[in-house]
Design a protein around this nucleic acid. Sequence first.
DNA 1: AGTAAGGGGCGTCAACCTGA
DNA 2: TCAGGTTGACGCCCCTTACT
Length: 269
Amino acid sequence: MWWHQHNLCFRNPLEEGYSSGDLEKKVATITETDESADSEGVIDSHKHREILSQRPSYRRILNELSSDVPGVPKIGEEKSEEGGSPPGITTMAVPTSIYQTSTGQYIAIAQGGAVQLSNPGSEGVQGLQALTMTNSGAPPPSAALVHYAAQAADGKQQFFVPGSQVVVQVATGDMPAYQIRAPATALPQGVVMAASPGSLHGPQQLAEEATRKRELRLMKNREAAKECRRRKKEYVKCLESRVAILEVQNKKLIEELETLKDIYSPKTD
DNA sequence: AGTAAGGGGCGTCAACCTGA
DNA sequence: TCAGGTTGACGCCCCTTACT
């Protein structure tokens, strides 16, 4: 866990009864920053909006905090430090591309060319089914939805993914296998490419295009919300560790002050 | 066992921000 | 200016815990 990976293994302040909001105020107080925006209690919505709009993102705040505290990872850089996973936690390759087939299955192509399958019922990458890759085709750089699927001439199922590549089912049964191939021909017979916006006619195609755009936007926003929540949690953890560090520092300074007082104060005998 | 309360996660919407 | 990213807010669902 991040909390332990950076030698910041203090008692978790949240377990001592702090809410994350309390923590934020606590850090603001200790560091004398201007983060205690809602300390006044009730504020009108307009003011609240202003405050929110002036508030930097979690990524920025945490990166600023990280630059102050050595050893605290910056958001966006934490991937490499997760190299050694804690015992008991199964690691899995982060997929670089995720595609959805016409049957609703998800195909994730991980770095190194591993292909993973996920059924519609499973959630996200959980439940992804690792499959054997028989070649190491480089995955396309961006994630996108598969627009079409087809049955190849040999009866094997194919999924066409962006980047002019084809994921081909090369074995069926209990342990299906898939390959990433460059398509031999431009398109197999019977495959119809999704129409480009410029070639749309009729209200039905326009409606389909609008639906497709909406679903794409929802999917992206879904992922963005997940990422945002992950960053928020990381931000709270960062605040927790900062509180712990500052409390220790504060305690030391108080002790030091008491010691100096004892040394330099005139004896009153 | 049944139930209410509380917490966490998720999807979605909307407002705002930012970079091209 | 606009498309895409970010994030607060809301409602929903599921799980856990305490209580009856």
